[in-house]
Simulated scan of single mutants.
Amino acid sequence: MSHSSAWPVKIVALLRAGNPTAAIAQIRVAPSVRDLRALEKALAAAQLSGKWANVDAAISESLQALSAPRLHRSP
């Protein structure tokens, strides 16, 4: 059974409310790559992709950070 996250919907709501700063803060602490990909799809569906360059940059940076292999394990 698939469970869809409400996180992307909340980020889109922040952007629609005119608060890209709060959206970027949430994107930087994104729970997973899957949620970021869902956010990209939600932005495209809402025709909001590309509207905020800094939001797109935050998504791409967070995807890179979460996708990168870990250099070491914590003890």
Rank of each mutant, 00 (worst) to 15 (best):
K10S: 13
S74I: 06
I27H: 02
S74M: 10
A42V: 03
A53N: 11
S67M: 10
A68G: 08
G50F: 07
R37M: 14
S2F: 12
A6W: 05
L36Y: 00
A46M: 03
P69V: 07
W52A: 11
S2I: 14
A17E: 13
A46N: 09
W7C: 08
S74E: 13
K10I: 04
A22W: 00
R16M: 08
N19Y: 07
W52D: 15
A6S: 11
S67P: 02
I11L: 10
A13Q: 11
A25D: 12
L43C: 05
P75R: 11
S32W: 03
A23S: 07
A53P: 10
K41Y: 08
A45V: 04
S62L: 01
R28Y: 01
A46L: 00
W7T: 08
T21W: 04
L14W: 02
A38C: 10
Q64S: 09
A13V: 00
A45H: 06
W7M: 06
Q47S: 15
L63C: 04
A68Y: 03
R34A: 12
A65D: 05
A53V: 12
A6G: 07
R37C: 14
V9H: 09
L63M: 10
M1K: 09
T21Q: 15
P31T: 09
W7Y: 14
G18L: 03
L48R: 00
P8I: 03
P31D: 09
S4Y: 07
S2Y: 09
E61Y: 01
P75H: 09
L48E: 06
S2L: 13
I24H: 01
D56Q: 12
L48M: 15
W7R: 06
S60Y: 00
E40T: 12
I11K: 00
S5P: 05
A57I: 06
Q26P: 01
P31E: 10
R34Q: 13
S60G: 05
I27T: 02
L14F: 07
R28F: 02
K41C: 06
A65G: 05
K51H: 13
H3D: 15
W52I: 02
P75V: 07
A44I: 11
S60K: 11
K10A: 14
K51Q: 15
A23L: 03
S4D: 13
E61L: 01
M1A: 14
M1P: 08
W52M: 06
N54E: 15
A65Y: 01
A42S: 15
A22T: 11
V9K: 10
